[in-house]
């Protein structure tokens, strides 16, 4: 294991994109970063630039217009990269499954590595998901 791959697991930076979610999961992701749950102590930082990010956190189902932006974001991220789908609708479409503008879960647009269940997903579940993603990241040489 090289130095870079070792360091990557210690401070994964995340970029967050809201792909037609209801906001419930978005504010729970932000709640993870604030003092009550404080994932920053593990080196996890929320940044706006996909070019600096290791982990793409997506909330909400893929819709027609949003998934174009999502693909664009995903392609701008440097390898190795992971995608985490947060919430029931990001996994399958959830409560929005029969809406006409919805393609389905996020995996209809980009490959997903970790699914976090819940509507809305609790911060504990999101932190659990990040830990799973780190486990996956550490196996990439």
């Amino acid at each position: 294991m090289g130095l870079i791959s070792k360091a990557r697991v210690k401070s994964p930076w995340i970029v967050h994109y809201c792909c037609s979610s209801c906001n419930g999961c978005d504010i729970e992701i932000l709640a993870c970063l604030t003092p009550y749950y404080d994932v920053e102590r593990f080196g996890i930082l929320n940044i706006g630039n996909p070019k600096h990010a290791d982990l793409l956190v997506v909330t909400g189902p893929a819709n027609r217009r949003g998934s174009r932006v999502l693909k664009n974001l995903y392609e701008q991220m440097p390898d190795p990269k992971l995608v985490m789908a947060v919430g029931a609708c990001a996994a399958t479409g959830g409560v929005f499954h029969n809406c006409y503008n919805i393609l389905g879960g996020v995996d209809q647009a980009i490959p997903v590595d970790v699914y976090v269940p819940g509507c809305a997903a609790r911060p504990e579940a999101i932190i659990d998901g990040v830990v799973l993603a780190l486990d996956k990241l550490s196996k990439i040489k």
Binding site: C18, S20, N63, R65, G66, N98, C99, Y100, I102
Partner: peptide, 15 residues
């Protein structure tokens, strides 16, 4: 606008 459109009003007629 339209990046987050889902079509909830129409879906409400189906449920």
């Amino acid at each position: 606008i339209g990046y987050m459109h889902r079509g909830i009003e129409k879906a409400a007629e189906k449920n």
